[in-house]
Amino acid sequence: MAVMAAVVGFTHLLTGFDNPTLVRLVTTLLDGPYTSRQATYDLRRLGRKGLIIRMHGSHRYQLAPLGRRVAMLFAKAYGRVLAPGLAALDPQLPEALSTRSELATAWRRLDRTLDQFINDGLAAA
């Protein structure tokens, strides 16, 4: 996922991106080690899936049209579904706001039920 996020960041580059550039960005995103060998593997997989295209006569890559559509899907899903959903599930969200969301209400009910189940199990043991 971090690799795709990094590749999406290269969409504006007319000259494309290369392996070392991808390694630097993914290492920053993961906040951990990411080797050139891993980048080569990921680039090969993204190319086979049609998400990136190797530029003729070089070791540089560009996002393919399918890759752009997938990138837009990820961006929209994050902005419209994931971020608001995670915000509704925030345990520090005030009760007045959480009761407005069916997702937050269901999540809190599940959380309370699980806590009760665990406490009953520990008390029985």
Rank of each mutant, 00 (worst) to 15 (best):
A2S: 11
A5Y: 07
A5L: 12
A6P: 10
A6N: 06
V7F: 12
G9N: 12
F10D: 04
H12P: 07
H12K: 13
L13N: 02
L14F: 07
L14M: 05
T15A: 09
G16S: 02
G16K: 08
F17D: 02
F17L: 01
P20M: 01
T21N: 00
V23T: 11
R24Y: 00
L25K: 09
T27Q: 12
L29K: 07
G32M: 10
G32P: 07
P33V: 13
Y34Q: 02
T35S: 15
T35N: 11
S36R: 12
S36V: 15
R37G: 01
T40I: 05
T40Q: 11
Y41F: 02
D42S: 07
R44F: 10
R45M: 13
L46I: 04
L46G: 06
L46H: 06
R48W: 06
K49N: 14
L51V: 01
L51S: 09
L51G: 09
I52V: 15
I53T: 15
I53Y: 03
I53R: 13
I53C: 12
I53Q: 13
M55P: 01
G57K: 02
R60M: 02
Q62S: 13
A64H: 14
R69F: 05
V70W: 00
M72R: 15
M72S: 13
M72V: 05
F74H: 15
A75D: 12
A75W: 09
A77H: 09
Y78F: 02
V81F: 14
A83D: 03
A87M: 06
A87S: 10
A88V: 04
A88M: 02
D90Y: 05
D90W: 05
E95F: 00
L97W: 11
L97M: 08
T99E: 10
R100C: 07
R100I: 00
A104H: 01
A104T: 03
A104C: 07
T105N: 00
A106D: 07
W107G: 10
R108W: 00
L110S: 11
D111I: 01
R112S: 10
D115I: 07
L122V: 11
A124P: 03
A124W: 09
A125N: 15
A125F: 07
